[in-house]
């Protein structure tokens, strides 16, 4: 189902069962991933496009998400000004061993093969750590004071430490 809440920067496409029942989309063949497995194996295909292009694309991808063939999708409601990308970014999430099957689905829906760009979630997590390019760009793009910036860095560090402290615990997701 497409989850479009105006208060959120992102639009999500998740299985109905994940939203309303106990289903966890972050799994491999039905088995939820641990924190360690998540960092080792979870990732996403990255696409660039306009909001309109992505709205049209997810209408066609939603059935695959409901069938749990594509675990989850998220995309920008509008381009993030601070990042200067000029386009919205869409992330299509899956386990690394399923990525080629998911890519074939994307190709079948008109995505061009030259747009192949796979990023592991562990790389994204690192970018949101103190000193990581995403966090630091966010801080400088929002014109935070030194004190505010330090607080944000400390919060980020603590947040991820709490999330991944027990590598054998089932991964609970990242607040976005």
């Amino acid at each position: 189902m497409i989850i479009d809440r105006p208060e959120s920067h992102f639009i999500f496409v998740l299985p109905w069962a994940h939203v309303h029942m106990e289903y966890n989309y972050i799994n491999f063949n039905g088995t939820p991933l641990t924190n360690r497995e998540y960092l080792d194996s979870w990732g996403k295909w990255i696409l660039f496009g306009t909001r309109e292009e992505f709205d049209a694309l997810v209408e066609n991808l939603d059935p695959f998400v409901e069938q749990k063939v594509i675990p989850a999708i998220k995309y920008d409601r509008k381009p993030i000004a601070e990042f200067g990308l000029g386009k919205c970014v869409m992330c299509i999430f899956c386990h690394v061993e399923k990525k080629e099957a998911v890519w074939k689905i994307l190709l079948s829906q008109g995505v061009e093969n030259e747009n192949r760009a796979w990023i592991f979630e562990r790389e994204t997590v690192a970018m949101w750590q103190p000193g990581g390019r995403l966090l630091e760009s966010w801080i400088s793009g929002n014109g935070l004071s030194q004190e505010q910036a330090d607080k944000m860095r400390e919060n980020a560090k603590e947040k991820f430490k709490r999330m991944f402290e027990d590598e054998n615990a089932i991964f609970k997701g990242i607040d976005q």
Binding site: I46, F48, F83, G84, L85, V89, N113, E114, N115, R116, A117, I119, E123, T124, M127, W128, R133, L134, S137
Partner: peptide, 12 residues
């Protein structure tokens, strides 16, 4: 081969 270059900020 297809070589693709994107800004790192898109990887978030």
């Amino acid at each position: 081969d297809m070589v693709y270059i994107i800004p790192l900020l898109a990887g978030g």
